[in-house]
Design a protein around this nucleic acid. Structure first.
Lengths: 225, 225
DNA sequence: TCGCAGATATGATATATATCAGAAATGTTA
DNA sequence: TAACATTTCTGATATATATCATATCTGCGA
């Protein structure tokens, strides 16, 4: 089967130890969907029917706080599971998810995953670990960001995208407004501080294009503000 | 066996569906420890050897940010599992835990729990749900607190303890400094705002003793600042 | 019981960040 | 292409919160 999860090169190590029969079940229970940049994958409050896995692209997880503003909880990178796995707790999505870049998402029937958990103990244990990790990461990031001043937060975000794109030069996939929503500050201040960093020759910016010129100093700022 | 988990009235529903053999294993693998107010249950960085369950009392989960300051991540209520269950991800504790009140903690060998996960699929599924819930709660609380102004945060905390003690009158189990560390503000401002709320006749305070006089207004403040 | 460290308390001031205002650049739709 | 909305940008100002200083109170060990 050309669409087999067993042969998928984007597969998470979570699925590494499944047997033939389990892979067959997984392959049957999944669909692969493409989402264009900007499109919405799911909305807060909607029923959870599937377990989502990001193959390629970049997503944002967010919550609407009022009509004009969103609170971005986190960014999902390829090979991550999506939705904080509240799948096993709540019956409705706690957060909305949308695509920051054209993305390819594996949509696996939630019942199939629950089945795997029940039948395959080591899969369950792996899943617990993976879930722990994602949650710890998101919480850790939030706590971290709140300890920093605005300069530190901007530096942190620039470094985060460096990690994602594995490069000092990249097109930032979010607007200044979205950066603000991600690190709890105001759009004007995001812009202002980016300009300051430019003037200080720490970064080069041209619209969405970012180049980190002085990595060391940026890391200092991320750490100490 | 008098110490049996099967007969424990403080037991979490997580363990409800275990069979006789599983209960026997659980009972054998657990110790029940008492911690005096102020004593430390575990320290950030220590090896995780057990799965902790709070029977009675109140704990705080925290991180040291610098020599003088702690960042309190959350408060654990009875019948909660402790340590954000990073047990399944990290091998060392991500956070420290100490007792805010005299507390009784069940310490279960982590390998016994892993064994249950592997052998008993429905236990695994339950655990995933429980874990999801705790993580969602903690993250939700953090996000929520950051949206509020200082007045709103104080109101929120006062209402949180009302929930815990199920009463409008209670002795607050944390110092003003700890309140500050829990809701990301400064000790002086905690004290100042408590005084303001007292002057406004919304609460009565006398040292650690708190009485909520105007619940409605306090709820308004918690919501809108 | 004294003396001391930490907690509580309050006022004055400093500072970081938000808010407001307006302009230029960019993208989008008719 | 024009018209409009949105994003980016910069400066001025307001405001919330942190910081500093100082005093009183409280609990605790010697």
């Amino acid at each position: 089967m050309e669409n087999s999860c067993e042969l998928c090169i984007y597969r998470s190590y979570l699925f590494d130890n499944l047997d033939k029969k389990e892979f067959a079940l997984l392959t049957l229970s999944k669909k692969e969907l493409e989402f264009r940049k900007g499109s919405i994958i799911c909305r807060e409050g909607e029923k959870i029917k599937s377990f989502l896995y990001l193959k390629q692209g970049l997503l944002k997880i967010y919550k609407n706080v009022d009509n004009r503003r969103e609170q971005i909880i986190g960014i999902t990178k390829p090979k991550d599971f999506i939705g904080l796995l509240s799948a096993f707790n709540e019956t409705t999505h706690l957060y909305s998810i949308s695509a920051l870049e054209d993305s390819s998402v594996c949509v696996i029937d939630i019942e199939a995953i629950k089945n795997l958990v029940i039948k395959d103990g080591s899969f369950a244990l792996n899943l617990l670990g993976k879930m722990s990790k994602i949650n710890d990461q998101i919480l850790g990031t939030r706590l971290n960001i709140n300890l920093k001043n605005l300069r530190g937060r901007i530096a942190y975000i620039l470094l985060m995208f460096r990690e994602i794109y594995k490069s000092e030069i990249y097109d930032i996939p979010v607007s200044r407004k979205e950066i603000a929503e991600l690190i709890e500050m105001r759009t004007e201040n995001v812009i202002r501080i980016l300009s300051e960093l430019r003037k200080d020759k720490i970064i080069r910016i041209e619209g969405k294009s970012i180049e980190i010129l002085d990595l060391h100093r940026l890391e200092q700022i991320a750490e100490f503000g």
